[in-house]
Protein backbone atom coordinates (compact mmCIF):
# COMPACT_ATOMS: atom_id res chain seq x y z
CA UNK A 1 0.00 0.00 0.00
CA UNK A 2 1.13 3.50 -0.76
CA UNK A 3 0.13 7.03 -0.02
CA UNK A 4 -1.91 8.53 -2.83
CA UNK A 5 -2.87 12.01 -3.97
CA UNK A 6 -5.58 12.93 -6.44
CA UNK A 7 -4.92 16.47 -7.64
CA UNK A 8 -7.48 19.25 -7.57
CA UNK A 9 -9.16 20.15 -10.86
CA UNK A 10 -11.63 22.87 -11.96
CA UNK A 11 -14.43 20.59 -10.87
CA UNK A 12 -12.84 18.19 -8.39
CA UNK A 13 -11.27 18.45 -4.92
CA UNK A 14 -7.81 17.39 -3.83
CA UNK A 15 -7.90 14.00 -2.16
CA UNK A 16 -4.94 12.83 -0.12
CA UNK A 17 -4.80 9.29 1.24
CA UNK A 18 -2.19 8.47 3.83
CA UNK A 19 -1.38 4.94 4.95
CA UNK A 20 -1.22 6.19 8.54
CA UNK A 21 -5.03 6.14 8.24
CA UNK A 22 -5.89 9.67 7.18
CA UNK A 23 -7.89 10.79 4.20
CA UNK A 24 -8.48 14.43 3.37
CA UNK A 25 -10.92 15.75 0.77
CA UNK A 26 -10.63 19.49 0.24
CA UNK A 27 -11.87 22.06 -2.25
CA UNK A 28 -15.02 21.84 -4.31
CA UNK A 29 -16.62 18.80 -5.84
CA UNK A 30 -18.95 19.39 -8.75
CA UNK A 31 -18.23 16.92 -11.50
CA UNK A 32 -21.09 15.91 -13.72
CA UNK A 33 -20.05 12.27 -13.23
CA UNK A 34 -18.27 12.08 -9.88
CA UNK A 35 -17.82 8.30 -9.93
CA UNK A 36 -14.82 8.57 -12.27
CA UNK A 37 -13.08 11.02 -9.97
CA UNK A 38 -13.75 9.18 -6.71
CA UNK A 39 -13.12 5.71 -8.18
CA UNK A 40 -9.39 5.53 -7.26
CA UNK A 41 -10.15 6.77 -3.75
CA UNK A 42 -12.78 4.07 -3.22
CA UNK A 43 -10.33 1.39 -4.40
CA UNK A 44 -7.64 2.73 -2.07
CA UNK A 45 -10.06 2.54 0.87
CA UNK A 46 -11.00 -1.04 -0.01
CA UNK A 47 -7.31 -1.91 -0.04
CA UNK A 48 -6.76 -0.18 3.26
CA UNK A 49 -9.63 -1.99 4.93
CA UNK A 50 -8.22 -5.33 3.81
CA UNK A 51 -4.65 -4.65 4.85
CA UNK A 52 -4.73 -2.38 7.87
CA UNK A 53 -6.14 -2.56 11.34
CA UNK A 54 -6.18 1.07 12.42
CA UNK A 55 -9.39 3.05 11.97
CA UNK A 56 -9.60 5.71 9.25
CA UNK A 57 -10.00 9.40 9.85
CA UNK A 58 -11.73 11.26 7.01
CA UNK A 59 -11.40 14.99 6.95
CA UNK A 60 -13.96 16.57 4.64
CA UNK A 61 -13.33 20.22 3.89
CA UNK A 62 -15.57 21.05 0.95
CA UNK A 63 -16.85 24.50 0.06
CA UNK A 64 -19.33 22.95 -2.29
CA UNK A 65 -20.46 19.56 -3.52
CA UNK A 66 -23.16 18.60 -6.01
CA UNK A 67 -25.58 15.69 -5.92
CA UNK A 68 -23.35 13.43 -7.99
CA UNK A 69 -20.55 13.99 -5.46
CA UNK A 70 -22.94 13.46 -2.52
CA UNK A 71 -23.52 9.95 -3.80
CA UNK A 72 -19.77 9.23 -3.97
CA UNK A 73 -19.14 10.63 -0.50
CA UNK A 74 -21.95 8.45 0.80
CA UNK A 75 -20.41 5.41 -0.89
CA UNK A 76 -17.03 6.14 0.62
CA UNK A 77 -18.37 6.68 4.13
CA UNK A 78 -20.63 3.62 3.95
CA UNK A 79 -17.61 1.47 3.08
CA UNK A 80 -15.80 2.64 6.19
CA UNK A 81 -18.95 2.45 8.27
CA UNK A 82 -19.39 -1.21 7.34
CA UNK A 83 -15.75 -2.13 7.89
CA UNK A 84 -14.62 -3.57 11.21
CA UNK A 85 -11.75 -1.12 11.58
CA UNK A 86 -14.23 1.77 11.84
CA UNK A 87 -13.22 5.41 11.73
CA UNK A 88 -14.37 8.96 12.27
CA UNK A 89 -15.23 12.02 10.23
CA UNK A 90 -14.06 15.59 10.68
CA UNK A 91 -16.50 17.87 8.89
CA UNK A 92 -15.05 21.29 8.14
CA UNK A 93 -17.47 23.93 6.88
CA UNK A 94 -17.48 27.68 6.25
CA UNK A 95 -18.90 29.40 9.34
CA UNK A 96 -21.49 31.39 7.41
CA UNK A 97 -22.81 28.44 5.44
CA UNK A 98 -25.67 26.68 7.24
CA UNK A 99 -26.42 24.43 4.29
CA UNK A 100 -22.99 22.81 4.40
CA UNK A 101 -23.21 22.25 8.16
CA UNK A 102 -26.61 20.59 7.69
CA UNK A 103 -25.14 18.39 4.95
CA UNK A 104 -22.66 16.99 7.46
CA UNK A 105 -25.29 16.49 10.14
CA UNK A 106 -27.46 14.67 7.65
CA UNK A 107 -24.69 12.22 6.72
CA UNK A 108 -24.09 11.65 10.43
CA UNK A 109 -27.73 10.62 10.90
CA UNK A 110 -27.39 8.11 8.09
CA UNK A 111 -24.20 6.48 9.37
CA UNK A 112 -22.77 5.07 12.60
CA UNK A 113 -19.44 6.85 12.20
CA UNK A 114 -18.79 9.57 14.77
CA UNK A 115 -18.64 13.12 13.35
CA UNK A 116 -16.74 16.11 14.68
CA UNK A 117 -17.61 19.58 13.33
CA UNK A 118 -15.12 22.31 12.77
CA UNK A 119 -16.17 25.73 11.42
CA UNK A 120 -13.58 27.67 9.43
Amino acid sequence: MENKIISETDFGPEITMDISGKISIAGKSMMEDASLFYGPCLSWVEDYIQNKKEGLQIEIDLNYFNSSSAKQLMKLLMKIDDAEIGGNVVWIYPTENDVLLERGQELEIMLDLPFKYSPK
Binding site: N66, E106, I109
Partner: peptide, 26 residues
Protein backbone atom coordinates in the same frame (compact mmCIF):
# COMPACT_ATOMS: atom_id res chain seq x y z
CA UNK B 1 -38.25 15.64 1.47
CA UNK B 2 -35.39 15.00 3.87
CA UNK B 3 -36.52 11.40 4.32
CA UNK B 4 -36.95 10.87 0.60
CA UNK B 5 -33.52 12.40 -0.11
CA UNK B 6 -31.78 10.14 2.41
CA UNK B 7 -33.54 7.05 1.17
CA UNK B 8 -32.72 7.82 -2.47
CA UNK B 9 -29.12 8.74 -1.68
CA UNK B 10 -28.52 5.54 0.25
CA UNK B 11 -30.14 3.39 -2.39
CA UNK B 12 -28.15 4.93 -5.21
CA UNK B 13 -24.90 4.58 -3.23
CA UNK B 14 -25.66 0.91 -2.63
CA UNK B 15 -26.89 -0.01 -6.05
CA UNK B 16 -24.46 1.94 -8.17
CA UNK B 17 -27.32 3.07 -10.35
CA UNK B 18 -27.89 6.38 -12.04
CA UNK B 19 -28.55 8.97 -9.36
CA UNK B 20 -31.61 10.27 -11.19
CA UNK B 21 -33.80 12.33 -8.97
CA UNK B 22 -31.44 13.11 -6.10
CA UNK B 23 -30.52 16.48 -7.55
CA UNK B 24 -34.12 17.59 -7.99
CA UNK B 25 -35.20 16.38 -4.53
CA UNK B 26 -32.28 18.26 -3.08
Amino acid sequence: LDLLYRKTLKESALNDDDSAGIGMID
